[in-house]
Design a protein around this nucleic acid. Structure first.
Lengths: 137, 137
DNA sequence: TCCAATTACTACTTATAGGTAGAATTATAA
DNA sequence: TTATAATTCTACCTATAAGTAGTAATTGGA
């Protein structure tokens, strides 16, 4: 009942970048240091985010990462979907291949409300919204 | 963002047993057949449930499983905790070691409501409540 | 041109969940 | 007492997530 570590790190990284977007580029060393994420794991995650198109990378000296579009237009859910971690409508709490329109599980109805709240939270929160909220990590 | 397969299976097994509690004992073969769960995996899960004390097993010929206490007194959350799958109060959505009273993550406040709904759903639903709700699986 | 700083790629290791196989143990009924 | 039907135990296999290591490719500047 948790997001994958990759998704959690990704949200923290991008929300840190959103907060520091005045500095032209942020590189992997700075991000790993600031957010206390293992450097090698961070670069792996960043490469996936770059492939998704949310962020562009500049290689070579003075390189780093920056956003492709305004942070107000990047929703948390887009980040989760890179790591196959967003919550599909069909997903249910006892849903191993059985829970659907024809055949509802015993907790189906009670599950709807928290599910929708979580979907809403992910779909309607932009990086702009969450950047700087809470503390550093 | 899902319960483990073991937890999902366990809830389905026990809720099936609750529905058929008039029959003195149900054995692993019957349960695996009725619920379409791999026999060997089901016995592994049942052994853990027996160790937890929720269910007793009778070995040998005409053996099987039965509840230790009324199904109205067995909450879904008790089942989840056997598989370390219940939602602790401290758990947060961006909670890799950082989210606590001193240091809240960016989604901390938005997370409270769905979390509490899920906790409530698990803590206040008994097997009696959910048995027979929804369809067979 | 060459060095240094940077990301990207490939491959590996480790940890954990999910699932399977076979033999050991237990208990009943005939 | 013996065959049989059941759970339990130990060990394994497979898939996936998490994390690490080393090297290649790219770029800017001296």
């Amino acid at each position: 009942m948790q997001l994958s570590n990759s998704s959690q790190y990704a949200i923290r990284i991008l929300s840190y970048m959103a907060l520091h977007k005045e500095s032209k580029l942020l590189n992997a060393t700075q991000l790993a240091e600031a957010l206390q994420i293992p450097y090698k794991f961070l670069t792996k995650i960043m490469t996936e985010i770059v492939k998704s198109g949310l962020v562009v990378s500049i290689r070579g000296r003075d390189g780093g990462y920056k956003f492709e579009k305004p942070t107000s237009e990047i929703m948390v859910n887009e980040i989760l979907s890179i790591f196959h971690d967003s919550i599909p409508d069909e997903q249910c709490v006892l849903g191993i291949g059985f829970c659907n329109g024809l055949c509802k599980c015993a907790l189906h109805d009670q599950w709807m409300e928290p599910k929708h709240l979580m979907q809403k939270m992910f779909q309607e929160s932009s990086l702009e919204d969450i950047a700087g909220k809470g503390c550093k990590f």
